[in-house]
Write a protein that binds this DNA or RNA. Structure first.
Lengths: 138, 138
DNA sequence: TATTGTTATACTCTATAACTATA
DNA sequence: TATAGTTATAGAGTATAACAATA
């Protein structure tokens, strides 16, 4: 694939800026980015551990630890499964739902500020392209 | 700032995909992303600790540790300063320069693969917009 | 006295390997 | 025996506070 020289490294830099800003927003809600992402995945629906493991790109021991820490803060809760007692489903507590909604909303509202200096036209084009880039990526 | 609903969270997801791919490339060169970024900053010029601290968005103890680990692998080297003996400058070793160049090149060549599925027109527009977004951001 | 960088400490994240309980 | 999830262990990253050396 031929790309402008520097594009690859621009992407790394851009992603770092986004992650840094995201981490700030999470910290304002007393969350790490990993905890916030976990919370956003379970705040509106229960999810199994394997599914979460895959969605978060974490090996299972990593997820176990993340869930431990997030559960200790009272944001999520492990639930057993009747049919297959090896399985375990994660649900969010009311507090978790509330915090998750708040982080999600603030990300939606303030993360785009990073691109404030783009012209309205460019900003709109950028939004469309980001959406298109993700569309076949998930 | 008004943005499409979901744009902020798209950005988080996009940045995660980029960082994940970047980490893969770094790992192929036996580096962490933090070490690779440090190396890319010093591979072509010496840099002071404060400058690096600011560029990497790290507090000073964090940078000290990162430099320790990278130095232990023989990739960078601390140098004293004659004028002000409190200061310390970081330079890359020949091996560091070589590894840094290799990672940089592979990021330039393969990170854009993430957007292979975009049409050539969209891809070009995306490259331009990413460049524009960073232009006033640094 | 102020500044640069390091050390000490603590917590989070993440990986691999070994283990437990269940199927 | 195979699978789901946990525990054990280790290393990396990052933050705050205390410290040493130098200016």
């Amino acid at each position: 694939m031929t790309a402008s020289p520097g594009f690859g490294n621009h992407l790394v830099y851009l992603s770092t800026l986004i992650q840094r800003r995201f981490a700030q927003i999470c910290a304002e809600h007393d969350l790490t980015t990993a905890q916030a992402q976990l919370l956003c995945l379970v705040k509106d629906q229960p999810r199994g551990m394997s599914e979460l493991s895959q969605l978060l790109g974490l090996a299972k021991p990593g997820l176990s630890g993340l869930v431990d820490r997030t559960e200790r803060r009272g944001l999520v809760q492990r639930t057993g499964c009747e049919q297959d007692r090896r399985l375990c489903t994660l649900i969010s507590t009311p507090k978790g739902k509330q915090v998750g909604d708040a982080v999600y909303a603030e990300v939606a509202e303030h993360l785009p500020d990073l691109f404030e200096h783009l012209s309205p036209t460019d900003r709109h084009a950028f939004e469309q392209l980001v959406a298109a880039a993700l569309r076949e990526e998930r």
